[in-house]
Design a protein around this nucleic acid. Structure first.
Length: 686
RNA sequence: GCGCCCGUAGCUCAGUUGGAUAGAGCGCCGGACUUCGAAUCCGUAGGCCGCAGGUUCGAGUCCUGCCGGGCGCGCCA
């Protein structure tokens, strides 16, 4: 890991600059650390002299020379070199650096970090999951892993909208279109792929509505029944939601995605979370009753378009202190009710029913520990590593872990919900919790569409002369049943992987082959869903996603498998294991590592591998995991090139062999960690 | 109409605190398996970074305008 070295240089340099140029805190430039384009220039470099040039009225080059001259000794730094163009470059103590990083890691220091809640997945529990949902969970789960890597405690929640329109529509499908009873549906669920069945039924219901709009009265009626409970529709709705959620959990488990708590919307209603939040919002003036105009009788929240309404976001740090007390914050901007052009969002309808935004506000308050109420909790299912909990409104377990009340909240929801998520933050500010707003993140990402080729392959080709046909992609639509089901994709992926594995390892048993194929399939999807910027739409193409070559998850896995093979052979052939290797590194001549034999390639590998912590640090505030994916890929790429060029087992010079093996060991360790952050495991062979 | 996002190689994309020579993958073409596994590697070709201004020692990156595309803006969720 490289960050401790950054910190050491930065601290040293800051003190040095203060002495050298009598700079006080305000005048002190930030010491940015970068990587020179090649190792002959240095291992780390800073453009700090450029920043000082104007203030000191001196050429950057002269400043860099002065700093280098006064630098003195610093642990881990072999040499400081001012570059002719003004950069200040550093050379590291290579041997110590690598030995340090190979030593067994000390137990992670206890951090005072407060809990973060990550909510992701949140699929309507009325049909099978599709490829778009996988993007959500892949991003959400990676966020969870990355935060935990940094020592931040994380609670993972999956929100279940069991009382919404989508469940109601499937209830209508079963009751009205198919005339089934609860028992009939249960039988069906026990004997079919229930989530697939509902996928089709849901599409049929949508069509049925489209044929005759008056049929929508069935939806309204069902929605009402579900919300009030104690009737057939509610029982069917509850059954469907429960069964479909279990299907979703199985699908997600295939992707190595897991949760701590399922929060059910029905419980938010039954426990009257909204009533509580409503009181707070009314008291603070965040919402008010319209007495005239088209919205008369509605409780509304004014929508602010100015900058002040969108507080800057903060990201958690393991050692961050508690937020400033609210008293030190700027006062909430006054809401100008007289402003004629102002827009208003209805929170409570004139018929007294709260909107989706209202429920979400209450839920967000609870997540931040600002509501003053809690759920009851039941065990949803037992798992090897402990129970999966779910909320409930009556008869909960007497003892349960503590949920909610987090310092940081991440809501992983697609970009179309940006507007609502912004309202959520505004509500927090208006209710007097600006710091809660700053610590609430909408983790937004773009949609997944289908390529025309893939749509055609699946039988969704749009009519030749339609608008859709002219577009560069085909939109998925759960309502129309148009899309790639997650399990179908995973099945295809794993089938293809199994074929590849079998071709290369004919001696494998079927079970072994399938176990490995599964790991490879997961690597392929998860990497594919992570490697694009979140604000870029993914035009999903089966062929591309199925590819195990080039920039892909399996490519990175393959590099690690190769590295592991080297160690297995080293041990078998030469009796040299990792511990034995480590023990000798202090004595072995380090010419190969130092680049004295003409190539710096193993040092390049080590330095690049060490950057994982820096990459993670960068990835948390930006929420751009493509950076992490790219890092892993380029490290794997560098390793593969090295592997090809530089033999280890057959290298005759013992010192060279040992340093190469040590570098491979470190790269392997770091790549394994990077893959784990993406939810990808390493197969024993592939 | 208003708001947000995108425009970089033939295609798909990196380039996220403004820094040293704009990079990958795929595709094309040409090479490398009696050698730690070729799901690999090496090489060739391919760029008015949408356009025009501005800020800066320095702009693909920041600002303004324009052009092209996507998505939002409901007493739906």
């Amino acid at each position: 890991m490289i960050l401790p070295v950054h910190d050491r240089i930065r601290t040293h340099l800051t003190r040095l600059l203060a002495e050298l140029y009598a700079l006080d805190g305000r005048a002190m430039p930030t010491v940015a650390l970068e990587y020179p384009p090649n190792r002959t220039l240095g291992d780390l470099g800073t453009p700090v002299a450029f920043e000082l040039a104007r203030r000191l009225k001196k050429a950057p080059r002269a400043i860099a020379q002065e700093i280098a001259g006064a630098f003195g000794a610093l642990e881990g730094i072999a040499r400081v070199a001012p570059a002719p163009n003004g950069y200040l470059n550093f050379f590291l103590e290579r041997r110590a650096f690598l030995i340090d990083r190979l030593a067994p890691a000390p137990p992670a220091p206890r951090t005072a970090a407060r809990k973060a809640i990550v909510e992701h997945t949140a699929i309507n529990p009325n049909k099978a999951a599709h490829i778009g949902h996988l993007r959500n969970s892949a991003l959400g789960d990676t966020l969870v892993r990355v935060l935990r890597f940094r020592g931040i405690p994380v609670e993972v929640q999956n929100y279940i909208d069991d009382t919404g329109v989508q469940v109601a529509d499937v209830v209508v499908g079963f009751r009205v279109l198919e005339r089934r009873t609860v028992d009939g549906i249960r039988q069906l669920a026990d004997s079919t792929r229930f989530d697939y069945y509902c996928w089709d039924l849901y599409a049929r219901v949508t069509e049925w509505y489209d044929e005759d709009k008056t049929r929508l009265s069935h939806r309204a009626e069902t929605l009402h029944d579900i919300e009030h409970g104690g009737n057939d529709a509610a029982a069917i709705g509850a059954f469907i939601a429960d069964r479909i959620v279990r299907c979703h959990l199985r699908t997600m488990a295939r992707m190595n995605v897991d949760y701590d708590l399922l929060t059910w919307e029905g419980d938010i209603l039954r426990l009257k979370f909204w009533a509580q939040a409503f009181d707070v919002l009314k008291a603070s003036g965040a919402v008010y009753l319209k007495t005239e105009g088209p919205l008369a009788g509605c409780w509304v929240m004014p929508i602010q378009e100015d900058e002040g309404s969108n507080p800057k976001s903060q990201s958690p740090k393991p050692n961050a202190q508690s937020p400033k007390p609210e008293g030190e914050r700027e006062p909430v901007t006054d809401i100008d009710e007289e402003d004629a052009g102002e827009r208003e969002k209805v929170i409570v309808r004139s018929n007294g029913v709260v909107t989706y935004v209202g429920k979400d506000i209450a839920y967000q308050f609870w997540k931040l520990g600002l509501l003053g109420r809690d759920f009851q909790y039941r065990i949803f299912e037992e798992r090897p590593h402990g129970p999966l909990w779910a909320t409930c409104s009556t008869g909960g377990e007497a003892t349960h872990p503590s949920f909610g009340g987090a310092a940081w909240v991440y809501n992983v929801i697609d970009v179309r919900q940006s507007y609502l998520q912004k309202l959520l933050k505004q509500a927090l500010v208006a209710a007097g919790h600006p710091e809660g707003a700053e610590r609430s993140h909408h983790f937004s990402y773009e949609m997944v569409a289908l390529s025309h080729a893939t749509a055609r392959e699946l039988g969704f080709a749009p009519p030749p002369d339609s608008e859709e046909a002219k577009r560069p992609f085909v939109s998925v639509s759960g309502r129309k049943g148009l899309g790639v089901k997650a399990d179908d994709l995973l099945d295809t992926l794993m089938r293809n992987a199994a074929r590849e594995v079998a071709a290369r390892n004919p001696e494998f048993s079927e079970a072994e082959r399938d176990r490995i194929a599964q790991m490879i399939g997961v690597a392929a999807v998860r990497y594919f869903l992570i490697k694009f910027s979140t604000n870029k739409m993914i035009v999903f193409d089966l062929g591309e996603a199925l590819s195990f070559e080039g920039e892909s998850g399996p490519y990175v896995q393959y590099a690690v498998v190769r590295a592991n093979n080297i160690f297995q052979k080293l041990q078998r052939r030469d009796g040299l294991d990792e511990r034995g290797l480590l023990a000798t590194l202090g004595e072995v001549p380090a010419g190969e590592l130092a680049g004295e034999y003409g190539s710096h390639e193993i040092w390049e590998l080590v330095l690049e591998a060490a950057r994982l912590d820096e990459v993670v640090e960068q990835v948390i505030p930006s929420l751009e995991f493509s950076v992490l994916a790219k890092h892993a890929f380029s490290l794997a790429q560098a390793f593969n090139a090295f592997y090809h060029r530089s033999p280890i087992l057959n290298e005759e010079r013992d010192d060279v062999r040992r340093w190469r093996a040590a570098a491979v060991m470190y790269v392997r360790n770091q790549l394994t960690r990077a893959l784990d952050l993406m939810g990808i495991s390493v197969p024993p062979r592939m």
